[in-house]
Computed example of a mutant assay.
Amino acid sequence: MPACGASKLSHGSAKARIAAHLSFYPACNIHLIDELDIADAPVREFHGAADDTTLAVTCLDYITRLNAAGKDAIMTEYPGAHHGFDNPDARLVSVTQSAQSSRNCQRREENGKILNVETGKPFTFNDACVELGSTVGYDKAATEAAQATVKKFLTGVFRLN
C-alpha cells in the first residue's frame, strides 16, 4: 500500500520514460551497484575543471564507463570554473576552509552500505580521506555556455525545432 494514502498514479504514468539525464558537478567517486544500468536516455554532465569539491576526473571515468557500456554519455568541462559555477549568488570565488570534502575518498556500494574503498569499512566523514576546504564561485562564461548547451540538447531531445 502506498505511504500516506498516495495512489500509484501520484508517482507518474507507468508509460512515462526518462528523456535525459542532466547533471552539474556531481560527486562521481562512489561506485554503486548496477551504476551502468541506467534508463536508456542520453547523459550530459557539466563540470568546472577547477572544481576542488567534486573532482571532474572521477566523472570523466564514469562517463567513459557509460560509453563503454553503450550509453550516449558526454561530459563537458569548463576551464577555470569552480564548483557551483552556475550559481549567480556566488559572484565572488571563495574558499570555505571548514567545508568537508570527500573528493579524494573512493567509495563503493556493497550489501546496502557505502564503504571506503581504502579501509573496507563503512564510509564516514571522519575518514582520513576527508579533507577540509572547498572553492565555489560563479563563472559567467561557463554558465552561459552550459545554458546554451542544455537548451540546444533539450531542444533536440524534445524535438522542439
Score class of each variant (00 low, 15 high):
1 M>S: 15
2 P>F: 04
2 P>S: 10
3 A>I: 09
3 A>Q: 07
3 A>W: 05
6 A>M: 13
7 S>M: 05
8 K>L: 10
8 K>Q: 09
15 K>L: 12
16 A>N: 12
17 R>Y: 01
18 I>K: 12
19 A>P: 00
19 A>L: 14
23 S>W: 03
23 S>C: 12
25 Y>C: 10
31 H>D: 12
32 L>I: 05
35 E>S: 05
35 E>H: 05
36 L>S: 03
36 L>I: 01
36 L>P: 03
40 D>H: 14
41 A>F: 05
43 V>M: 12
48 G>F: 04
51 D>E: 08
57 V>N: 10
60 L>N: 09
62 Y>S: 11
63 I>W: 00
64 T>M: 09
72 D>T: 14
73 A>I: 07
76 T>F: 04
78 Y>F: 15
80 G>Y: 03
85 F>H: 11
89 D>I: 04
91 R>A: 15
94 S>D: 03
99 A>H: 10
100 Q>L: 14
104 N>V: 02
109 E>S: 15
110 E>P: 00
110 E>S: 14
112 G>K: 05
112 G>I: 05
113 K>W: 06
114 I>G: 07
121 K>E: 09
122 P>W: 01
123 F>P: 08
130 V>T: 07
131 E>H: 00
131 E>L: 03
137 G>A: 12
139 D>L: 06
146 A>P: 10
148 A>W: 03
148 A>Q: 13
152 K>A: 15
153 F>D: 06
155 T>G: 14
159 R>T: 10
159 R>F: 00
